[in-house]
Nucleic acid binder design. Structure first.
Lengths: 341, 341
DNA sequence: GGATGTGATGTTTACGTTAACATCGTGGTG
DNA sequence: CACCACGATGTTAACGTAAACATCACATCC
């Protein structure tokens, strides 16, 4: 067992080369699996590396190669399920392609203006950037995306400025609304996400479009902030309206809150009121009752984000514009045919 | 408006220096906010940077400075709330200290052995590593932490090998169990997390210790995997046991599942059965009924992780061993005094 | 007015790696 | 046997930045 007395910090190829009795270039070749190194030499070098605790300096490597093999993700928060699952999917797929992921959390602008150390995004050691938020919110946070760095955007309408990958929000909302109408409900109430969210806007728009094109009245919108708590507040308002028999919540968490409010008000789900969510959280089958909801394919999203970005990096021709990942409605127990009075 | 005709890729200090009519060193000084640059020169340099679309090459910078200003986080998944919230807290606090975060997802070993590109963790461009999992699981995944890189571990008992930061699992579980006993329940049933999880083990241990030290019987443990679905299955088993009046679930999601199972079995919560969770998810106040649970302070965890790691990086004296973040019990509506028969 | 200090800027060099080119020996070929 | 091809290894230079040192102009002091 080698005694790693010597600090790894500062062990360079030159040190390894000296100990192994070869040139630094040969060490480099071994380190990169280059074929033209004879087995005996290779062994010697590997032994020397082991003994000295050598590890390649990726800064030097990146400098030489002109790339970091790292992608950056800019977002406000990981706290929403959508974001954390998207990030996970991106990280997994990027790893498969040999890229690491750097997380760049941006303090919300309202939050006493402290932006941390990332006022100068250009200094980040990344080859490309994935932005998970509305682009104009970046501007609001006083951040400018570095020019000439490939960018992909999620949850935004920046299709003209950058390639966009997104869940097909509109189609998901349409399916949810349609489903409730098909069950015979005269109309569908909506608990929307925050105004700043592009996804929330698209879901809202598709909901009202669907109602309108079916000649149904469009009830007043309840605004939430994605949290179950805000859904609860919206639910209290809806429970007070006896004409409300069907609710489409813009995400599962708010649907959870809505259901609690309805339950407390003595409205049975789905007997009196049907509820549909959006996201298909892992927990939603365990809600009371199990929630009918729109399934988002986060893994596919992550895959497409990475692929789109890598295609730009490699200067391959990419279809520009917006790339929509399909959704599908998952039927569970929170929806039922309208009980006609 | 400058025409960014020239590709930013390849714009170096030398280019900026040439255009501004100064030396590269002066550009460097401007770039780093060094004080001894006269205002007029600084302006010239900044204008030249702007015109050329210059952005510092962080690889070269890292090479020169010998540090990346980046911390790596190794984990299996972001899908659990605990992980994603810990990561978010770490990222936020690290940013405040001027460090970026690199995410290193590790495919679970069982998952057809594909480890992606990270077999050689040593090549990562990070100054320190935070491991969010049991260390021995890393070994199982055939990964070796690079020697001489500062490491902090979360959710592990590696206290002898590395500094550990963790939630005070034992105390949280003790509070939960105590609370139920104090309400008069003869004993407390437990829905535990998966056997691989250190946190799950600690919660289980503290639960049974608490029961034993109070002279109570220790019921058979139900095993879950953190998911609401697994909690539901455990809940079905518990609902079948008329002697079960108090349940401590090892996390909120499983508590959610337990409550659904109890509800379906016609057991009222908290009338017939009291339920306590662990985590205090943002959603748990919206559960039916709002869940009494053990609050974890993820922000504090993230802060301590980063601080501990940075202290090692700066070679400051650090208290070694395990650093426990306190928990507190949040009382809501899912627990009530035992209704004596 | 010459010595001295000070602040602004320039020059040199090294960080660790790898592409490109150079060298050297070995074995095969006509 | 002279020549060439080829595989293994070595040498050189460059990637972009910043520390250390050098220089220069000018103000200050006796």
């Amino acid at each position: 067992m080698p005694t790693n007395r010597r600090a790894a910090r500062g062990v360079s190829m030159a040190d390894v080369a000296r100990l192994a009795g070869v040139s630094a270039q040969t060490v480099s070749r071994v380190s990169n699996g280059h074929p033209s190194v004879v087995e005996s030499t290779r062994r010697q070098v590997l032994d020397a590396m082991q003994e000295l605790g050598y590890r390649p300096n990726s800064a030097a490597r990146a400098l030489k190669r002109g790339e970091f093999r790292t992608l950056g993700i800019i977002l406000f928060t990981l706290a929403t399920t959508g974001n954390s699952r998207t990030v996970e999917a991106i990280a997994t797929h990027a790893a498969r392609e040999g890229y690491a992921i750097t997380l760049i959390p941006v303090a919300v602008p309202t939050q006493d203006g402290v932006l941390g150390a990332f006022t100068r995004l250009g200094e980040l050691a990344v080859d490309g950037i994935i932005v998970i938020m509305e682009v104009h919110l970046l501007d609001a946070a006083d951040l400018t995306l570095p020019p000439n760095v490939p960018v992909v955007v999620v949850d935004s309408d920046a299709g003209d400025r950058y390639p966009v990958v997104d869940t097909d929000q509109a189609d998901g909302a349409r399916q949810a609304t349609r489903h409730l109408l098909d069950l015979g409900h005269p109309t569908v109430h909506h608990v929307a996400g925050p105004v700043e969210s592009f996804a929330a806007g698209r879901r809202l728009q598709a909901w009202s479009d669907t109602l309108r094109s079916s000649g149904r009245p469009v009830p007043e919108v309840q605004r939430g902030d994605w949290s179950a708590e805000s859904g609860y507040r919206a639910g209290l308002a809806l429970a007070a309206d006896p004409g409300c028999t069907a609710v489409f919540a813009a995400n599962d968490q708010m649907a959870l809150g809505v259901m609690r409010a309805l339950h407390e008000a003595g409205r049975a789900i789905p007997g009196d009121v049907s509820v549909v969510g959006f996201d298909d959280l892992p927990d939603s089958p365990a809600y009371l009752p199990p929630l009918t909801t729109v399934h988002q394919d986060f893994a596919e999203m992550g895959r497409r984000c990475v692929d789109t970005l890598l295609r730009q990096l490699r200067r391959e021709p990419g279809r520009p514009g917006t790339d929509l990942v399909p959704t599908r409605l998952v039927l569970r127990d929170s929806t039922a045919p309208h009980a006609r009075a």
